[in-house]
């Protein structure tokens, strides 16, 4: 093993000390649990202002809390995990940006006021955590979906609508999928939600992969941005499945 320069060793030691000592900027009683449950004892987890989570200060509708995650200020993001400390199901979704920017916007269900956080894992294995508090009346996770009381979703299940916009900073894709996204926490309604989505371009090149969990809102709507280098985007393909094996397979044209 090569000897590390003394300064680097000192720097690493200082960094490790800071990482251990870093207090939770959101001052949440649940942070210790989140840290232990989601990242494992050996993982390097740091609070990092380069990861931003934008949400309303006060959420009007706890069933549909708009959240935008942006980890694009970090180089080499492999995966981003989004979670809400005080939700009965804490994991909201994970996405791998692959060829897209490390940004994603979507809506979530909140059961009570909670930090909503994003942890971005870079290629060096370090998790960079940012987040924000969202105040809400709550109850978003334990009420039935609108779809569960209406026959419409059965006809339209996994139907996709969407659009691609050319913007100076790169293409933007918005996708909406008809799905009840039932959490399993409302009486007599089992968990029924989209688990996995893959968004590819015309050449079957993966742009982004999304693992969704129960707290993603009914009829999920995703906003993703592509880097300006991807110019030849005529259409995107979205494929995936829910936890009952129903498939999503649609093409969204410009």
């Amino acid at each position: 093993m090569p000897r590390l320069p003394r300064l680097a060793v000192f720097g690493l030691a200082l960094w490790a000390t800071l990482a251990v000592a870093q207090p939770d900027p959101l001052d949440s009683a649940r942070w210790g649990d989140m840290r232990a449950q989601l990242f494992g004892a050996d993982a390097q987890v740091v609070f990092d202002s380069r990861v931003s989570v934008i949400g309303p200060l006060t959420a009007e509708d706890p069933m549909n809390v708009p959240i935008a995650v942006d980890a694009s200020a970090l180089p080499d993001v492999v995966e981003v995990l989004v979670f809400a400390d005080f939700n009965p199901i804490t994991k909201v979704l994970a996405f791998r940006p692959v060829a897209a920017r490390a940004e994603l916007a979507f809506r979530i269900k909140l059961q009570q006021s909670s930090p909503v956080r994003a942890a971005a894992r870079t290629t060096d294995g370090v998790w960079h955590v940012g987040g924000t508090w969202v105040i809400t009346t709550g109850g978003g996770c334990t009420v039935p979906s609108t779809g569960s009381a209406s026959p419409e979703w059965q006809r339209r299940l996994n139907e996709v609508s969407g659009r691609i916009w050319s913007r100076p900073e790169g293409n933007r894709v918005r996708l909406r999928i008809i799905h009840p996204m039932d959490t399993g926490l409302a009486a007599s309604i089992p968990a029924f939600y989209i688990e996995q989505l893959s968004i590819t371009d015309g050449q079957h090149r993966v742009l982004m992969e999304i693992d969704a969990f129960e707290p993603v809102s009914e009829n999920p709507l995703f906003t993703l941005d592509l880097p300006p280098a991807i110019t030849d985007l005529g259409a995107v393909q979205i494929t995936g499945r829910d936890n009952n094996g129903n498939k999503v397979n649609a093409q969204v044209a410009r």
């Binding site: 009007e60 549909n64 996709v160 999503v248 093409q251 044209a253």
Partner: peptide
């Protein structure tokens, strides 16, 4: 609050419906 109430209908109208969705 108003954005939360009224924007979903506006964005739904702005998205194109795709024809090729998979039947379950």
């Amino acid at each position: 609050r108003s954005v939360s109430h009224l924007f979903p209908a506006a964005e739904e109208a702005a998205l194109n419906t795709t024809s090729s969705h998979a039947k379950h």
